[in-house]
Design a protein around this nucleic acid. Structure first.
Lengths: 182, 182
DNA sequence: GATCACATGTAAGAAGTTACATGATTCT
DNA sequence: AGAATCATGTAACTTCTTACATGTGATC
């Protein structure tokens, strides 16, 4: 079976936090930065259909009276699949090109994996970010010098983003750790 | 006619800088952060085909002897279409969800649009980034307080990225302006 | 002469986008 | 009653991904 899409996992994670309908989910996606993973009904409803066919979510009983609504909740299989997804160790590609997906996993992993696993993932992330940053800086100091000025500037924007991530991850590990000792 | 894809414009822009083959372009995408816009032959060659059918690029004469190579160069129509694309004024969506595309435009706009247009685009970008940042901070200080700790952290990563962009754009405008006065 | 790297491409399938369709329910 | 909005979906289209196909020139 092929992998589920990022959007599918995002929906699954939100349902893990709170059973709700496709319409509710869509409102969430429109209202928050999670909308990057698409906020159109033409993506959300088919994704919910896929999750249902996989047996990862199931719709509750149809409400008697009131509007037609399908309130989905994750099945045990769905919870397990979601736990596997959020527990993935970050790959270099996650760091360099799918940071948003990694942050989605972080945002939704609370209550799903043990604090020790969260720490582990954040530690791996820190190492990978530092390494990636070093490679970008090396490029900038070396072959990057030959690029046109505007190309260099655009590249620096990328470097600054990664620097911001490197700083963030240190704070995040502290905050996540503190919470654990409560 | 529908819009060309981001990958298509990226290829067109690179060809504007330097006529070359699909293979050369692919090497570029693999070696640089431009790879985010896809670096697989299954995307690049069809994109080149589309550009050719649009009349935006044309292949030079087949080399006699040596390997089979199709060296593409932009046509006048292609140059014009590219200039239109890079000159677009940044939309809120460009700022919030397609920053990478915006940076691609910046990286490739040198020599294609007049310095005054570059300044104009960067100024618009600065205003839009500041506004977006303010909205994120308002969310963080308000409804964001109710999110789980890890979700807050992930959100803060996004805020920090945008802060980095806000700082970057100020430096970038200076550097781009200085260059102009040379 | 065999193998490797060059260079271009195609096929199947997944998933998103936009736009439209449909009906029920609540509001005025 | 009529309009707006809730809620779910479908259809056509585009483009990407992965994997494979093909042939030629260079290299050992």
């Amino acid at each position: 079976m092929t992998d589920e899409s990022t959007l599918g996992y995002a929906l699954l994670g939100l349902l893990t936090q709170q059973p709700q309908s496709g319409y509710d989910l869509r409102k969430l996606f429109v209202a928050t930065p999670m909308g990057v993973f698409s906020d159109s009904p033409g993506a959300i409803y088919p994704a919910l259909g896929r999750l249902e066919r996989r047996g990862w979510i199931a719709a509750g009983p149809a409400p008697r009276g009131g509007r037609r609504r399908r309130v989905y909740a994750p099945t045990p299989d769905g919870r397990a699949a979601f736990a596997v997804w959020v527990s993935q160790s970050p790959t270099p590609d996650d760091i360099a090109r799918r940071w948003d997906v990694l942050m989605l996993r972080v945002a939704l992993m609370g209550g799903v994996v043990k604090p020790a696993v969260v720490d582990q993932i954040l530690a791996t992330t820190q190492a990978a970010v530092d390494e990636y940053l070093a490679s970008l800086e090396a490029f900038h100091a070396g072959p990057g010098q030959e690029m046109p000025v505007l190309a260099q500037l655009a590249f620096e924007s990328g470097i600054e983003s990664v620097r911001a991530r490197a700083r963030w991850i240190r704070r995040a590990r502290q905050r996540a750790g503190v919470r654990r000792k409560r």
